[in-house]
Amino acid sequence: MALENQELRKAGLKITLPRVKIYQILEQAGEQDHWSAEDIYRILMEQGEDVGLATVYRVLTQFEAAGLVVRHHFEGGHSVFELSSDDKHDHIVCVKSGVVREFSDPVINKRLQEIAEENGFILTDRTIYLYGIYKDADKERKI
């Protein structure tokens, strides 16, 4: 059985072609790929798949509820999706083009843990979004 089928079953979701195709797209994404529902719809169309945009939104919402994906809401109403993972990483977003890059910094991670402990907290989750202008923003317009 394919990995995506196992993940869908573990999440309690029925195996359907749209779910499998959307999961495969997310699974094949590189670290720097953060796609909106519209991006995923466009990829499906390029692959010749007959899946509507409403279905893509519905499946992504189901994946999010099942803990398979994380939805990031960036400023300006820009939302993108990536598969859930245990690695702690942060994002920097170009406010001009919508390009998203991941980064992970052990010094930041350690300091956040220390801050939580200093304040009597056990850190269970965290999110850092940095905003700026990507040097090649005009070449990579996504928004």
Results as ranks from 00 to 15, higher is better:
Leu130Lys: 13
Asp138Arg: 11
Met45Tyr: 01
Gln28Ser: 14
Lys142Ala: 09
Glu49Lys: 02
Gly76Lys: 08
Asn109Thr: 14
Leu13Asp: 10
Asp86Thr: 12
Ala2Trp: 10
Asp136Ala: 14
Arg42Ala: 08
Ser36Asp: 03
Gln32Trp: 09
Gly120Met: 12
Ser79Thr: 14
His91Thr: 03
Ser84Val: 11
Leu112Met: 12
Ile122Arg: 15
Asp90Tyr: 15
His89Leu: 04
Lys142Ile: 03
Ala137Arg: 02
Ala11Tyr: 10
His89Lys: 13
Asp90Trp: 15
Leu53Ser: 07
Phe103Lys: 04
Glu38Thr: 04
Glu31Val: 13
Asp33Ala: 05
Asp86His: 12
Val93Tyr: 15
Leu3Val: 13
Gly76Ser: 06
Val95Phe: 04
Met1Glu: 02
Gly12Asp: 08
Asp105Tyr: 05
Gly98Asn: 06
Val59His: 05
Val51Glu: 00
Gly48Asn: 03
Trp35His: 09
Glu64Ala: 14
Arg141Gly: 09
Ser97Gly: 14
Val107Ile: 09
Val100Asp: 01
Asn119Cys: 04
Ile115Asn: 01
Gly52Thr: 09
Glu7Ala: 15
Glu4Ser: 15
Val80Ser: 10
Ala29His: 13
Ala37Met: 02
Ala54Cys: 02
Ile25Lys: 02
His34Gly: 06
Met45Pro: 00
Gly132Pro: 10
Val51Arg: 00
Tyr41Glu: 00
Lys88Pro: 00
Ala2Gln: 07
Glu27Ser: 12
Ile92Lys: 02
Lys88Ala: 12
Asp50Pro: 02
Ser36Ala: 13
Ala37Thr: 02
Tyr23Val: 03
Asp33Phe: 05
Leu26Arg: 07
Arg111Ile: 09
Cys94Ser: 11
Gln62Thr: 08
Ile22Met: 03
Tyr41Lys: 07
Leu26Ile: 04
Gly120Pro: 11
Gly120Trp: 14
Leu83Ser: 09
Lys96Trp: 00
Glu31Trp: 12
Leu123Pro: 07
Gly76Val: 05
Leu17Tyr: 13
Lys110Phe: 07
Gln47Asp: 06
Val69Gly: 07
His72Met: 05
Ile43Ser: 00
Ala37Asp: 07
Ile22Pro: 00
Thr16Asp: 00
Leu26Thr: 08
Thr127Ser: 14
Phe121Met: 11
Val95Gly: 09
Gly132Gln: 10
Gly12Trp: 12
Leu26Ala: 02
Phe103Thr: 11
Gln32Ala: 08
Arg9Cys: 06
Leu112Trp: 03
Leu8Val: 12
Lys14Thr: 13
Glu82Ala: 15
Ser79Gln: 08
Val99Tyr: 07
Ile43Lys: 04
Tyr57Gly: 01
Ala116Val: 11
Ser84Trp: 14
Tyr134Ile: 05
Ile128Tyr: 07
His91Ile: 04
